[in-house]
Design a binder for these strands. Sequence first.
DNA 1: CATGAATGAGGATTCATTCAT
DNA 2: TATGAATGAATCCTCATTCAT
Lengths: 192, 192, 192, 192
Amino acid sequence: MAKLQKSIDKRNALVNATIKLVNSNGFHETAMSKIAKMANVSPATIYLYFENKQDLVNQTYLEVKTKYTDFVFKNYNEKSSVTNGFEIIWRRIAEFTLNECDYTMFLNQCNNTPIIDEASRMEGIKHLQPLLDLWIRGKEEGTIKSYSDYMLYAYSINPLSFLMIAQKQYNFQLGEKEINEAFQAAWNSIKI
Amino acid sequence: MAKLQKSIDKRNALVNATIKLVNSNGFHETAMSKIAKMANVSPATIYLYFENKQDLVNQTYLEVKTKYTDFVFKNYNEKSSVTNGFEIIWRRIAEFTLNECDYTMFLNQCNNTPIIDEASRMEGIKHLQPLLDLWIRGKEEGTIKSYSDYMLYAYSINPLSFLMIAQKQYNFQLGEKEINEAFQAAWNSIKI
Amino acid sequence: MAKLQKSIDKRNALVNATIKLVNSNGFHETAMSKIAKMANVSPATIYLYFENKQDLVNQTYLEVKTKYTDFVFKNYNEKSSVTNGFEIIWRRIAEFTLNECDYTMFLNQCNNTPIIDEASRMEGIKHLQPLLDLWIRGKEEGTIKSYSDYMLYAYSINPLSFLMIAQKQYNFQLGEKEINEAFQAAWNSIKI
Amino acid sequence: MAKLQKSIDKRNALVNATIKLVNSNGFHETAMSKIAKMANVSPATIYLYFENKQDLVNQTYLEVKTKYTDFVFKNYNEKSSVTNGFEIIWRRIAEFTLNECDYTMFLNQCNNTPIIDEASRMEGIKHLQPLLDLWIRGKEEGTIKSYSDYMLYAYSINPLSFLMIAQKQYNFQLGEKEINEAFQAAWNSIKI
DNA sequence: CATGAATGAGGATTCATTCAT
DNA sequence: TATGAATGAATCCTCATTCAT
């Protein structure tokens, strides 16, 4: 009994094409037929893997977000001190954000426009739970300002997206030195 | 060159409708006919005021950006000290960003997606020239870290957009206290 | 203030094209583009006059049914005796059914398949109210069998559709003589 | 010529699924994949049994028509008198028409719309040959009006389909009494 | 200036049919 | 024989833009 398998490769090709095309053209300028062409499949094939365009983008979003989280907390050890822990996580986030431009831009676009189902986005910054936990510890032991999580995120994490875009779009390079500066700025804004 | 007999009211209505609809539905989900309806004009009338859809959005973007800049630097006096000057400007930006949600969200959407002509967006953060000048002074006199303008902007200004969105979308309130916290975080990240 | 009018001619052309094409190809084989072409308009124009394909067919159905009823009861006088009244109505129905083949076939197709919204069809044979009233009188005075309306309709009216189709499709002509035969058969089946 | 190793069960399942789905959704709303699903086979399997969709429906039509004829003339004895013979056949037709709703509806839909190849339908009412023969005898011996077969059919047989649909769709029940009424009406319309 | 009607080009999606196993 | 995957062609419908008044 030989059954064909829906190929995971095809699915990935579709997801990747979606990311690239949505990044460069925006969601609604990205025709399903173009996604199909870039993934080397027929338009109809997309519908074997995804329910419709919205579903394709939702799943792509969740997938990228998972990649992000997985990368960021891989190797992270909850036993580290708050100071160390923060720097470790921050540098992972920086690495992802600055190197995986496609992923970051895609997440950005999804977070700033109504192209994603409310449901898919709703979690907010919950996916960074270990970081939020670290902040709790930091606040308790007096290392980190007792700000709202949103505030801490806004000043210590979110700026990285802007820097990545600035690097991409304008004449601005992010080398070793700048990343260290960024870390200092981040840490200074939230440390006590 | 047609005389400006065209009603400025109608133009404004169109611009405002564009902002509202693009904010809630995104650029490509916003049909010209809906913009027309919301502005109480015929679709054809739009083309008396704007060349096409792209032009409408571009002009809207530039207009909002101008409103932003005008508001921010109104009353600003270049004679102030770096410390004072920064706080004054920052608080104006905060006021605009947090109160004029429609404008801010629209700018955000334009800055994070390819809905605006490269040309219209190209200026980057040049529109904040007086702030950039202040930063130069600050770096010279040793009050402000000698970071790139993009870095300074990323940590002291950009987070406000995120906070506004967090306030809109999640259960997070920005009162007097939080704004002061935000200012502290901003200042700590860039001050020497 | 010159306003253009949605042209009633265009609407009629669309309705007529629908009838013809649905008759010869069936509902789902009839592409909107073909209807448009036959009516000499752009496909998009259809949507100025009708909400969608379903609406187009529903409205066409109701329009044809109205034409039918109007034709049948024009000149009908409720004062006539049951016998006379029945013959008068019957002959009008026969005239319409046998001459207006397109209309009759269309009604037939709508009545025998699920191409019409339940709502649009729901009235059943209510549109023949004056005939139903006549039958009531006939039953009361003992001229007409006390059968259900459906039964009376099935035997005295409905056969005409079949005859029309037989005439169209097979080698069967309906002249003066045959129509008289049909009337006799109809009357004999329901008279007391 | 492939041996008939193909499962007759599967074929029947396909035919039955076709009948049910076409009845409730119409021909062109009935996707091959849905027929396959209802028959518990793969879409591809259909093409082992039928050339294509049209062939599937054509064969289904002929099969149902055969069931109809077989049922109607089973036990029929050509020796019966015209009067008796007609009643016997009529009652068999009535039984089939009123009980086998799925079959009847399917035949109806095929007869009233262009979903069947002209060729498959062409026989008209030839499949009722024993009845047509009976009518010939009836006309010769002066029991039955010398009408065209189509006329006789239209008034004595065809109304049953309408009654079945009325029963299905509207608030109208066909019990013993009504069936007898129907027979009287039928007979009265064609008897001399 | 202003408009409602009209449209052609294009997009998402479905489906009968074929292919590879 | 039987299948699930794959697809190209076709369909409905939308929309930015233009036209006629």
